[in-house]
Design a protein around this nucleic acid. Structure first.
Lengths: 347, 347
DNA sequence: GCAATCTCCTAAACCGGTATAGTTTCACCT
DNA sequence: AGGTGAAACTATACCGGTTTAGGAGATTGC
């Protein structure tokens, strides 16, 4: 004799009213007398009734869930502190209101779009948080086509139908460059993320323009896929130059850590021979030798804000773009003045 | 004039049959003639009909989704390559069959149990993947109470109502210890995870028993919370001992990396003065200076296997425990012979 | 004093599937 | 020929909510 969980009909029976009225009472709708409402809520409470999300979903055409699709190689995500923090932030916004996060992690861009289509086809989510914006990002049009609400993490490079929740990287990069130039560096390189990714190219642009503002060349840039191994490769390339940089600004921490290792193995002393800075402020950074100068971003806050903005959007509210506190430089041990003289006859 | 997506009734009308028969045809049930089935499928295809997951959910009492609750500090997860790989693996099993992953990331154990309750109360998932097993883990009884199916990642410490998908850490730790002892180390320490976590205590036991098997003391163990900062603290404690170890076996990579930094800052040369080994084989490990000797586990495979086992379980199949290929040592540069003589008068 | 209106409530349709009981058709058996 | 049974299909209840049309009774308006 399995004891079924109580339904709205049980509550209605117990309270001596109709199903419909229970629904009204539950949803705080007018047309229920205060006394009856009390009685209904008491009965519901007594029976331990929780409305079935499935039934609600079917009749109201809502999923009560948000989607997040991450399209990166697991190895890259693994090293990146950004996503866990983002997800934790999203969770803090969703849990209190009974919403859920549907997560999809895919490798190719192909699979990514398919993943959005599947989320929509199955009505899994009411909206999606679009992260890792790319140039001319196809996901905006896709979300629109699929009837999904969305917020973007950062501003797209074209007019967007969706609100953006943005955290400006520029001040982080800019103050990193200023910090290095202030230390006396003149030849500074940047190990960038993929140019197709907007935050990759924006950090690159910030880097270049910050250097040019100081009258220096901002063209020593190597593009990578954000992976530690590609960061290592980029570092090796830079150090092999006839006139190698005295400082390298990495666009994430894992690459900076890998780069530090590569430089050290090449016999360089960090930071005396080479300054290194990261981006994202991973936990390990502060325990490295030397500790890592990096840029910190409030990823968790970003997730929380994006999720709650998306919820409001789904509710039908108007949501304007939101700017969060910008990225901020954290100076630690991996950056110092450059070696006194750069021998012209490097090899 | 919004064009509604076609429903089963539209298909029935188009094919000239009843709703029920369309349902039968769709689900490959007997009682539909081959010819009619063709006609129905053709009509469905023509209309572009996809059955509504919501309606199916309501009438069949299934969620078509799995849940994963992760209860760790985001900072710790961030540094740990395990979870992204696990999730990616889960995804590869779910996506092809139209299932989804509902992810919840919480901080406290309190919130964790609440999260399972919420998943169940809202019928979000048909089953959960239980990771980070603890001693006398309350989640087994909870899942049972909530009527959730489950698989555990690893074997619980008590008879379990759910199948386990296990990956044995022991050979990884054991061969690490053998490797170090073979190099000549006699005083080897272990920086362990929380004892409450089964993989934490099992790695610790493997460590101790492997050492004792070699006639050495396996009691130089410091417990941590798996975070890089706690790994740094543990390292500092070990190095401050009157008779410090010549090798440290860390129970994850972030702590090993942090420990390496701490040791280096203390003036030690790795691996000549101190050997260091990690666990989990993060990508950055191989680019550090020196590169990190560590233990590799097939986390992605683990996720894939666990998810598909759980799906079979939900289908009603009997699922036996599954053993995956065990953890394997990866020897790199951070381990070497100990210094020739240990001065008795350290300090 | 009687219609108009408002409040509180009920009955029933509806969301889009699945499942079950029942009907028709036709072959087969004796 | 009449009974049996299986195959193919229909009608309808059902999952558990929301929503709409409408009804009864009290209140208001003139």
């Amino acid at each position: 004799m399995a004891k079924h969980r109580p339904t709205i009909a049980d509550v209605a029976l117990a309270a001596g009213v109709s199903k419909g009225l229970v629904s009204f009472a539950l949803n705080d709708r007018p047309g229920v007398s205060a006394m009856t409402r009390e009685r209904i809520l008491a009965a519901a409470d007594e029976l331990g009734w929780r409305p079935s999300l499935r039934a609600r979903s079917l009749s109201t055409d809502r999923a009560f869930a948000l989607g997040l699709v991450i399209a990166r190689d697991p190895q890259i995500i693994a090293a990146d502190p950004f996503f866990p923090a983002l997800i934790a932030g999203i969770e803090t916004a969703l849990a209190p209101v009974g919403q859920a996060l549907v997560l999809s992690m895919v490798v190719s861009e192909q699979a990514e779009l398919a993943s959005y289509r599947q989320l929509a086809a199955h009505d899994r989510v009411d909206g999606v948080i679009i992260t890792d914006l790319r140039q001319d990002d196809p996901r905006l049009a896709l979300a629109l086509e699929l009837g999904l609400q969305a917020v973007t993490l950062g501003h797209p490079d074209a007019p967007s139908p969706f609100p953006a929740v943005a955290l400006d990287d520029d001040p982080g990069i800019r103050s990193t460059v200023d910090h290095l130039v202030g230390l006396g560096h003149r030849r500074i390189a940047h190990v960038a993320g993929p140019a197709r990714m907007l935050h990759g190219s924006r950090r690159r642009n910030s880097f270049a323009s910050a250097l040019e503002l100081r009258g220096l060349h901002g063209d020593l840039i190597v593009e990578t896929d954000f992976s530690a191994s590609d960061g290592a490769r980029a570092t090796a390339e830079l150090l092999a130059l006839a006139d190698p940089p005295t400082a390298i600004v990495y666009s994430n921490d894992p690459m900076a850590i890998a780069g530090m290792g590569v430089a050290q193995r090449a016999g360089l002393h960090i930071p005396d021979d080479l300054s290194i800075t990261g981006f994202d402020d991973s936990d390990v950074g502060q325990y490295l030798n030397p500790s890592l100068t990096t840029v910190t971003t409030a990823a968790q806050e970003w997730g929380r804000t994006a999720a709650s903005a998306l919820l409001r959007l789904i509710e039908g509210d108007d949501v304007a773009d939101i700017e969060l506190a910008p990225a901020r430089l954290v100076i630690r041990g991996s950056s110092a003045s450059p070696p006194p003289r750069t021998p012209a006859t490097a090899r």
